[in-house]
């Protein structure tokens, strides 16, 4: 869908993007993560052709990205904005026509969206007369009205109450199911795991991590497990010859006892269980999977250390 190769963007003394390459697969939700000032907005602006990179190439459906792709991209910037004095319907049609839609097409699709989100009564209202949340909804419609193949959402949930955030999230998923590729830029890690198939992490102008969420989690597998068992805490012989793992923590609650272990390198879970089997009555084993949030924090602090 979108292939970014070796993008460099220099602003005077500041290098906003340093040799960044990404691949956004078709029909997926792609999470673009990174702390403030990492270069996410610079990258998004380059994809939107708002600014041009100093070097590097971008391919959209295997064609070099050009102005003919503008109509195929929908962009919701982090800083929202609409013409305050303009009426909702008129403004939506204007924005859709700037993306290349005809007046009548824009009108039909707008009616569809306004019905769907139950905001039809807003047609003749001025933007300034709507609440902030309502404005956000309108702007979301403006972003997707021209049915773009690629939708770029920069913090799409900020400013929404939980109910409306859910409405928008459902709409995003539905658009994705219908075939739209989505680039989702955010700090909100919990939604990343829920929504994204693939992610890329940018820090200090460089890409530090990318891949599918599953693979990344596997890669960052901490080899840590929670083992529930019945019986007394630390029965005799539990730690005899226990070179396969370290016990990080152990807790006891009524007759349920829990162990947290970290496997030694090259040791499989089976080997560890084998060692434990004849010593304790295992009721449950659960792998502790690092959250994207943890990986994010770890990666960012790591690169900060190496830069310092």
């Amino acid at each position: 869908m979108l292939e970014i190769r070796n993008i460099v963007k220099q602003y005077a003394a500041h290098r906003a993007l340093d040799d960044v390459s990404l691949y956004v697969p078709e029909g997926k939700i792609f999470g673009l993560l990174g702390p403030n000032g990492a270069g996410k907005t610079s990258l998004i602006r380059i994809i939107n052709q708002i600014t041009a990179p100093d070097s590097g190439e971008i391919f959209f459906n295997n064609q070099p990205l050009s102005s003919q792709h503008i109509g195929a991209i929908g962009y919701l910037p982090e800083e929202r904005g609409l013409y305050k004095k303009m009426k909702v319907g008129e403004q939506m049609i204007y924005l859709a026509r700037l993306k290349g839609l005809s007046h009548s097409d824009a009108r039909t699709r707008l009616n569809y969206w306004f019905d769907k989100l139950e905001i039809g009564s807003w047609w003749d209202k001025r933007i300034e007369d709507l609440s902030k949340g309502m404005q956000q909804k309108v702007q979301f419609v403006a972003t997707v009205l021209h049915e773009p193949q690629l939708i770029i959402l920069d913090e799409p949930f900020s400013g929404f109450d939980p109910v409306n955030a859910q409405v928008i999230q459902d709409e995003i998923l539905e658009l994705n199911e219908k075939g739209a590729t989505i680039i989702y830029s955010t700090h909100r890690m919990e939604t990343v795991e829920e929504l994204c198939d693939n992610i890329a992490l940018i820090n200090k102008s460089k890409k530090v991590l990318d891949g599918s969420v599953k693979e990344i989690k596997k890669q960052y597998n901490s080899q840590t497990y929670l083992i529930d068992y019945q019986g007394p805490l630390l029965p005799d012989g539990l730690l005899d010859n226990a070179s396969q793992f370290n016990i990080i923590a152990h807790t006891s609650h009524q007759d349920e006892t829990q162990l947290k272990i970290k496997l030694a390198e090259t040791v499989t879970l089976n080997q560890a269980i084998h060692h434990l089997l004849d010593k304790i009555q295992i009721t449950q084993i659960k792998e502790i999977i690092p959250s994207i949030h943890d990986i994010f924090i770890e990666k960012v602090s790591q690169s900060s250390v190496t830069h310092a």
Partner: peptide
């Protein structure tokens, strides 16, 4: 106005 409204970024992603 366009700048302080922040609509500018939406518009220049189209034109």
């Amino acid at each position: 106005e366009e700048k302080s409204n922040r609509i500018i970024e939406v518009i220049i992603s189209s034109v």
